[in-house]
Design a binder for these strands. Structure first.
Lengths: 140, 140
DNA sequence: ATGGTTTATTAAAACCATTCTAAACTATTG
DNA sequence: CAATAGTTTAGAATGGTTTTAATAAACCAT
């Protein structure tokens, strides 16, 4: 039964992350991780949940998204002032940002190589390297 | 006279950008460009102006910063949700972002090379490529 | 299962950076 | 100098996000 397997997967993700598998967290996990790589905003995901009849408040969506970031289920991407995007792809990768539409598009890690990168300043270490390629013009 | 030369430079920058050299714009330009490369927030710069006795409203600081971005005197950097940084270095370069302090530090363009970069999707063109190296831990 | 404790959810209010508004002002042009 | 086009401003509004304080759900040891 695919539906049962998928449900278990979402539940497992939440459980393994050390978060209580509440109805809301499970529903949001299912929405986030059922399909492939996604880039959502809080309002975005909240609307989707309501559309599916999942009763969840916007505050809980924010709480959940931040918890998922904290435990490594999501990654937060900042490209637009005043709006956070959450990315279900937590592996090493980069982004195209379509300035015309506000859309994010993944760039697989292997499509960007660094010939040269500076070292972290003394006393610090590199958490991660984010590349954002900002695009103008509409996709065809 | 150094002070006179600096004043002229700020005025020239504003004039050449096609903006009227108003008292506020000149004062802000002087604050921004007198010292070397800077990363400021709007509130940040507003406070600095008030400290120097320059009478200017926060709304004007925002207007001016955005106008300066539009005419290429400044560049907007987004690393923190809910807060924009403005960078007086408009040339090609990248950034260290100190997560512990919220500080930005320039990385000269020549210290990052790309061995490989993807092409822009059909119908779009690359506006710019931003690299942010996120750092953990405090500088020594 | 049950009761007690901890943790999560919620509506509503608060927050805070930023933008808008509409009126007063200033630089520019004729 | 007057007309006009652009600028500044205080204060209100906006909009995404966070907090609050009360309610509800999950957990844990019996």
């Amino acid at each position: 039964m695919e539906r049962h397997d998928l449900a278990e997967t979402s539940q497992d993700r939440v459980r393994k992350a050390g978060l209580r598998p509440t109805r809301q967290r499970l529903a949001l996990a299912r929405l986030l991780f059922a399909k492939g790589s996604r880039h959502v905003t809080a309002e975005n995901l909240h609307g989707e949940a309501l559309d599916e009849g999942v009763r969840v408040s916007l505050a809980t969506v924010y709480n959940t998204l931040h918890q998922f970031v904290r435990v490594g289920l999501l990654r937060e991407v900042m490209v637009n002032p005043g709006r956070s995007y959450f990315d279900t792809n937590t592996g090493e990768h980069h982004h195209f940002f379509h300035e015309a539409t506000g859309e994010l598009e993944d760039i697989a890690a292997e499509n960007i190589d660094f010939g040269k990168l500076p070292e972290a300043p003394a006393g610090t270490h590199i958490d991660r390297v984010d590349v954002v390629i900002r695009l103008r013009g509409h996709r065809q």
